[in-house]
């Protein structure tokens, strides 16, 4: 809560007044962090369900899991891992800059974090989901080199996409056919893959929205050395999203 006294020219963060039901601002900050850590616990348990399903079906159908992970490109997963790790660094740094009062540097790092998130989601959609669902590859996709392009299908969307014959259709669900895979339990692999990665990607997008809000508010001078709860919390969320990917990546892409 901020006082809006027009005669007061100090930045908003210096004028911050904590909620009336808290005794001190420090207690309010601690309370907010405790509450958010509890929320993060619920997130871990939410993904815990997916990891549990992964473990059970992996032990039931090891063949499908082996075949499934061999159809994922660890290079794309690896790049995305690097992108998220870098974004975690810039997020942490931006909290530091807020704490020492270098607001514009903090905002720069926040924006960089958002862009990393956007890059992560773009790579996932463009290089992973789209080819698997449709058989259309982005023209710069290095994976194109391993496939024969279906010339008859032409170039899709202003020449940005190429179609690979026999590829695509690796969507979850009995409604779809499976272009690849011989193991009858491949649908389960793809179910776990899509549910896990899409819920994670949704979290990345929510994190980007949170950080964007922080970026806007930081521009108005809401955050500073005296008050940075929102930045801290957005950072905690972002690190969790990163952490979950750190588990998803080896389980899906690296282990055979």
């Amino acid at each position: 809560m901020t006082t809006l006294d027009s005669r007061d020219n100090r930045p908003l963060w210096q004028r911050y007044v904590h909620g009336h039901h808290w005794r001190t601002q420090a207690e309010e900050f601690d309370g907010a962090k405790l509450g958010f850590w509890l929320f993060l616990t619920t997130e871990v348990l939410l993904f815990g369900g997916i990891f549990c399903a992964y473990a059970i079906f992996r032990s039931l159908y090891p063949g499908a899991w082996k075949e499934g992970s061999s159809l994922l490109d660890w290079k794309i997963g690896g790049i995305n891992t690097a992108v998220l790790l870098i974004s975690s660094y810039t997020m942490a740094v931006s909290i530091y800059y807020i704490q020492v009062g270098k607001i514009s540097r903090a905002r720069l790092n926040l924006m960089f974090t958002i862009l990393c998130g956007a890059l992560f989601v773009t790579l996932k959609l463009l290089l992973e989901y789209t080819p698997k669902w449709t058989g259309w590859f982005f023209f710069m996709d290095p994976a194109l080199g391993h496939h024969s392009i279906d010339a008859a299908a032409g170039n899709g969307l202003f020449g940005l996409f190429r179609h690979v014959e026999g590829y695509g259709g690796k969507r979850p669900g009995s409604l779809y056919e499976y272009g690849f895979g011989h193991d009858p339990h491949m649908p389960l692999w793809w179910s776990v893959y899509y549910v896990g990665t899409s819920i994670h990607a949704l979290h990345v997008i929510i994190g980007m929205i949170l950080i964007f809000r922080v970026w806007l508010k930081a521009g108005k001078g809401v955050y500073g050395p005296n008050y940075y709860t929102g930045v801290e919390i957005a950072g905690l969320y972002w690190h969790l999203v990163d952490l979950i990917w750190i588990f998803l990546f080896p389980l899906l892409y690296l282990i055979h």
Partner: peptide, 18 residues
């Protein structure tokens, strides 16, 4: 229960087989 019900909704809508 959140993830369980979500998986159930996925299962009903997209016919995945968890």
């Amino acid at each position: 229960i959140g993830i369980t019900l979500l998986l159930l909704v996925f299962e009903r809508i997209t016919h995945i087989g968890i």
